[in-house]
Design a protein around this nucleic acid. Structure first.
Lengths: 235, 235
DNA sequence: CCTCCTATCTTTACATCGTAAAGATCAAAT
DNA sequence: ATTTGATCTTTACGATGTAAAGATAGGAGG
């Protein structure tokens, strides 16, 4: 909290060279855009950098603006307020997350691998992007009425429900679930999400420390997943 | 965020009546203590009130001081900083939580009830004290090096490990766990914690809405818990 | 009884934050 | 070429955490 606010932003003194091509459509990544350019995207990239560098507490509107090299009020025009920026960034996180899930499932060959690929990818994503995961699941400052966030989160949930349906060899309907289906989805999600949160919060250190020498979180997670579904896999 | 900071605190004009009994040990709850008294406890009570009324975002040092009717810098002397106050309050939360667990387990008669009593009490506590639960498990601003918080959280974990040991009819050692024991503890905790977080965040609305008419979260939770342990209960 | 000491509480001050409003600037439309 | 409107900057305000200095008693020692 001792960051001097008077840190000068590196900007063109007063005028950019008139030759600087800053077309709205083209992405000028070589030099910082002065007035126009893809500020929105630049801000989101800056925000992700700040988030993974300084954590959730460091993700402020002003810090993002600083990181992007613009005035502190610039983000307002693109995102309205902090909730807006945070929500758009969370949407990106969900999309990254969904992509990771898909590619992990595609890479799985055996039925056992298929059953474990998704949860393992879930935890792996959270470990690789703890800031993003915290943004997606810890922050209270998310506006799910924003279409981008709503859709991305919805897609994430649909993927989960689908995976459970595959495992149970059932068709998951769009608008109706049996109690057992709902319970299976809730159980899988709760287990994976709960484990991830506890792991990221360091609350499993206590368990891990008492386990046989050198037991990794992944091994613990795998063991914990295997027990209930043992014998329930097809073939 | 539009709270006028100039809200006058109701204080004795300049001097309290010299007859006001403000012994350090006695708790003068009838009239606000001026200089001495149990400010520490009063601040913690005020903090809990603010937390459950205004949520995590509303729990600020200054808001707590306002609620307690003292100057905004008064809490500093008792808790150091916001992390200090928040950590002490979380410790109280863990103690409340532990007490709720114990009384719930004591009230259970049948083996099935014993197996379900703890998880149900877990979710029930979180629903009854969402602010406290968020403080204990969502905030990043906790200092577990504080003895009070460390001990209370430790006791909570020990209770969980113990309950799992009872269900498995094993003795849980103090300093060593088998992989299966650790996995069982991690699974139970992850499931309950994950479900609670998702429920409090409203992320289960999607599932609940698709379930048979009038299915409560408790019913979903119970169903989700039953499946893996069905047939594993003694007698 | 008087004085001083020390813990406790208040005042004041400062850097930071989110947000609103007004001014500047430039690409593009007319 | 002028106007327009979107984009960005400046300025301003209230709120926050925290540090530092001042005020206030309750008790200790003479």
């Amino acid at each position: 909290m001792a960051k001097s606010e008077t840190a000068r932003r590196p900007r063109a003194p007063k005028k950019t060279t008139p030759a600087s091509a800053s077309s709205r459509t083209a992405s000028a990544k070589t030099e910082p855009p002065y007035h126009h350019g893809a500020l929105r995207e630049a801000l989101l990239e800056a925000a992700e950098r700040v988030l993974e560098r300084d954590g959730l507490a460091g993700l402020t509107l002003r810090a993002v603006a600083r990181e992007a090299g613009v005035s502190h009020a610039a983000p307002t025009h693109h995102f309205g307020d902090l909730t807006g920026l945070v929500s758009e960034l969370a949407a990106i996180g969900f999309r990254q997350f969904n992509a990771a899930m898909v590619s992990a499932c595609d890479a799985a060959a055996t039925p056992l691998a298929r059953a474990l690929a998704r949860p393992k990818a879930y935890v792996a994503y959270a470990q690789a992007h703890p800031g993003m995961y915290g943004l997606m699941f810890r922050t209270e400052r998310l506006d799910y009425s924003r279409p981008s966030l709503h859709e991305a989160a919805e897609a994430s949930f649909a993927g989960l429900a689908n995976a459970i349906g595959m495992m149970r060899q059932e068709q998951i309907s769009e608008d109706a679930l049996t109690l057992n289906q709902g319970a299976a989805i809730a159980r899988a999600w709760s287990m994976v999400h709960g484990f991830t949160m506890l792991l990221l919060d360091g609350r499993l250190e206590d368990i891990l420390g008492r386990l046989p020498e050198g037991t990794t979180p992944e091994r613990l997670f795998e063991t914990m997943l295997m027990a209930p579904i043992a014998g329930k896999l097809p073939a």
